[in-house]
Every structure is written in structure tokens, then in C-alpha cells.
Design a binder for these strands. Structure first.
Lengths: 254, 254
DNA sequence: TTTACACCTTTACGCAACGTCAATGTAAAT
DNA sequence: ATTTACATTGACGTTGCGTAAAGGTGTAAA
């Protein structure tokens, strides 16, 4: 009928430390202390502990459990429903993680089989990473999930030849952009060539190209400081220049 | 081309504190320090940070990331594969959690609709909890998943009338057992009545009853200290007595 | 030139939920 | 009477940073 810490701990499958901690934070006080200062728990405490452990199993924080078990009129169903939503979100996140890990494994395996070039190592991954981890969210918001997924799909499906092409294209874009920037005219020949190279570059990542989307991305280069930093680190004002060039190229002003 | 903490932090979408922390734990040292002790990062560090963030996104611990990014010949695929397994386990756990929360919500809703009795509150839940969280694993191991699931199913499907019956039965078992214990004879009339009540009680949880299983559970009452504690808290030796009584009742000695 | 202001530095405490000594006192069993 | 098992409080360690605090720089405007 009465239990010391160890006894209760063993019964409930938790540690004695846990019970002392629960005492400390006030979610499970012992029924009384004996003459030597031992914690003595009764039936009521056993029941309460079971409630606590139940909610703990559900992943509820002790802080929230405190509210649940102390407030007598607390709406359990409501709390559970909220927790349910959180769990579902968590699972979704986890699913994304899992599929990303799976994709990465497939990628690295493919890479290894494909070639042994050290320089190549990690770069395709980085491509996926750049697009996905850094800008994935924004792009998803603006252009939807499908485009991003297809983009990543395309990167993963690239052969080394294609990879080399896109790498070359990347430097070409930058170099042409530099030269064009000197002229100062985003509508000029060089700038339009840069815009065209940029379109080609985009087409390595995108499944379908539209002027609209191209112009949108160009605008984002200016709006998003991380993009701006990337382009402007070469030359201040570069991001804006590229945007203007693309806007001329696509015939779309945003 | 070169970045201070803030710059790099902003670019990568992390805090400056994070970068200092990464420096501290040695997974991302700056390229150099300037004359005033400022951290200066270069392109190599940007790349490395991107790798780090990539793995972080995947939920890998910084400790593991350290191994990945510092050891040049570290088998990435192997590491990812292990992480993959962990993630799958996590998702399984999460699925269990989710279904439990769903069941509990259904249960509490049913309870509320069924009646308004305060005393009843939380107890059916506790029944499921007791069986599942505390003894579920052992019972599953010995008698398989199906029996346990069906048991929980039965509890959840119980009406209040049935619940009252099983509650009454519980006290009857205990009381009869007490009286029988006085006689000291596990083969006597009282003890056999207790064993029979115990069988009836079991049948509220089990879908199919067998002498074998009944005898097995009785033995478990002695083997498992948590069960022993439960029965012995009334009277020391009670668990053994009940086991003996049931063994006589079922005609099975283990 | 001074001053404002943004940015840098290190140091160090705080968070959640305990695990894990350490030092010491008590109950129970031999 | 002594061993053994278990009780107590106290305090530090864990992970991945957030968040001051106290003070030194870098640059641009007044």
C-alpha cells in the first residue's frame, strides 16, 4: 500500500532519480515523508504517476503534463487534439527527412559507381543542398512543390557530362555578367547574352521554363539578401543588373 | 570572397552564435583571424558549412557530422545508412504514439458521451495503460501481439456496465483471495473460488481463454516483481498463493 | 575630430529531463 | 555487530545553441 522511491520506480519502470525530479518540479509530491526524510508514496500517487507516464509516452512535455494533472478542469480532449496535430506535423517532417536521406544515399552510391573523381565529390549533393536547404522554401512557396522536386530529380539524374556542362555554364554566366556589367547597359548585347546563358543554366534545374518564372527568380535575386550577397560579392549591384537584364530578356517587369 | 561571422551567418541562414559554437567544437574553424581577432571565413568554409547544414537538416548530431566532415575517408554512405535506420525506428515509434493518441481521443469522447461519472474518468484509460505500457511487452513476448491487441480492443469496447462488473470482480478476487489465504490451502474451496473469479476477470481482457495461458499468467505474478509487489502489498506471499491456487484450478504446473 | 552606431570578441548562465557520481545517513538481514 | 541495500541532498554533465554582459573595433555622419 505504501512505497519508497525504489519500489515505486521499479513498479512503474522509471528511475528513482526521475521520481525525485518529479518531486522537485512539483508534478508528483510523495504522500508524506517518514521520520528519516524518506519519500513515501501511496495509492493516489501511483495513479497520478500512471497518468503522468501516460502523457509522457505521448511525448507531452512535463510542463504541459503539470497543467494537465494539476488543473482539475483542464480539457484533456482539447489538449490531446492539439498534441495530435503536433505529432502529425512531426511525422511529416520525419518523412521528408527520411526521403532526403534515401535520396542522398542513392546519390552518393550513383556518384561512386559513376566515377572516381575527387573534385566531383560532394558537389552534386551541394547542388541539391543549395537549392533545397537554402532556397527550397522560398521557391516552393512561389512556384509550388512540384517544380522543386522535379528540379532535384533532374540534378540527381545528371550524368557527369551534364554536370560538367552546368558547371561550365555557371562560370560562363558569371563571366559574361561581369563583362556586361562593365557596359552598364542591361539591355545591351552582352547583358542579353548573360540572360540567355542564365536561362540555359536554369533549364538544367527546371523541368519547364517560362518567362514569368525566369523573371520571378531574377527579382528574387534582388529581394533575398542571401542571393544578393552571392551575386554582389563579385560586384556590388550585380544582382540588380542581372535582374534588369533578365527583365529585358523576358519582356516582363515585375 | 571573405566573410565575417554575421555575413556568413546571414548567408547561410544561421546565427552568429552557431558559427562561434561550431568553431568552439571544432567542426568549422575560420580560415584566419584578422588583427583584431575577428573570425574571417573563406570559400572553403562556406562549402564546409553547407555540408554541415546539409547533414544537420537530416537530423544527424553534430558529433557525427564532425566525423563525417573531418575524416576524409569516412564512409558517408555507411553513416547515412545507419542514420536512415534510426529515422525509420523513430517513425515507427511516432506511429505508435499517434495511434495511441487517436485511440485515447476516441476513448475519452466515448466516455463523455457514455456518462458523466467523475469516478470513471481516466480509469479505462488507465486499464489500457496498465496492460499496455507496463506489462504489454512481456505479455506480447509470451502470448503474441494478437492477444494483447484484442485485450485492449475489448477494454476500449466496454460499456460502463461491463466496466462496473470488472471493477466489482477485481475487488471480489482480492477479497476472496484474502479469505482463502487465511485457510493456507491453495487447493481448498475458497482458493479455488478465487481462482475461478480470477479466470472470469481475465476473460474480460482476453478473447480466448486457455488453462495454459491462465497458468502462465499466474506464474508470471511470481516471476515479475512488479506483479509480485502488487499482490504482496496486501499480504506477503499472496502472489505465490494465487499462483498455486490457479495451478490447482487449471491442473497445470509450470 | 569626435561621436554615434553597428559589429566584433570572450565569458558564462539557461533550457529539458534526467544520468551519474559523491558524501552521508538509515533499514534490514546475517 | 557488521554487512548489504537503499535512502537523502548536492552538484555537475549532457545537446545545440539563445541570450545577456562587459568590453574592444570599424566606419560613417556631424
Amino acid at each position: 500500500m505504501e512505497y519508497t522511491v525504489q519500489k515505486l520506480a521499479h513498479m512503474a519502470g522509471v528511475s528513482a532519480r526521475t521520481l525525485r525530479y518529479y518531486d522537485e518540479i512539483g508534478i508528483l509530491k510523495p504522500a508524506r515523508m517518514n521520520s528519516s526524510g524518506y519519500r513515501i508514496y501511496g495509492q493516489a500517487e501511483v495513479n497520478r504517476l500512471q497518468q503522468i507516464l501516460f502523457y509522457r509516452e505521448l511525448g507531452v512535455s512535463l510542463e504541459s503534463i503539470k497543467d494537465i494533472v494539476t488543473a482539475p478542469s483542464f480539457n484533456e480532449t482539447q489538449a490531446l487534439r492539439e498534441h495530435h496535430v503536433k505529432l502529425l506535423e512531426k511525422r511529416e517532417q520525419l518523412d521528408v527527412l527520411i526521403s532526403n536521406v534515401e535520396k542522398t544515399i542513392a546519390l552518393t552510391e550513383g556518384r561512386i559507381k559513376m566515377m572516381d573523381n575527387e573534385k566531383f565529390k560532394g558537389f552534386k549533393q551541394k547542388l541539391v543542398d543549395d537549392n533545397e536547404a537554402n532556397y527550397g522554401k522560398e521557391i516552393r512557396e512561389k512556384y509550388g512543390n512540384e517544380i522543386v522536386n522535379k528540379s532535384n530529380q533532374k540534378v540527381k539524374g545528371m550524368s557527369q557530362v551534364q554536370y560538367d556542362e552546368v558547371t561550365k555554364l555557371t562560370t560562363e554566366v558569371i563571366e559574361t555578367l561581369h563583362a556586361a556589367f562593365e557596359t552598364g547597359d542591361p539591355a545591351g548585347q552582352l547583358a542579353q547574352k548573360a540572360a540567355d546563358l542564365h536561362r540555359q543554366w536554369l533549364c538544367y534545374y527546371w523541368d519547364s521554363y517560362t518567362n514569368e518564372a525566369h523573371a520571378g527568380v531574377a527579382q528574387m535575386y534582388v529581394d533575398d539578401p542571401r542571393f544578393t550577397a552571392y551575386y554582389d560579392k563579385q560586384q556590388p549591384g550585380m544582382a540588380e543588373f542581372l535582374r534588369d537584364a533578365v527583365h529585358f530578356y523576358t519582356g516582363i517587369k515585375k
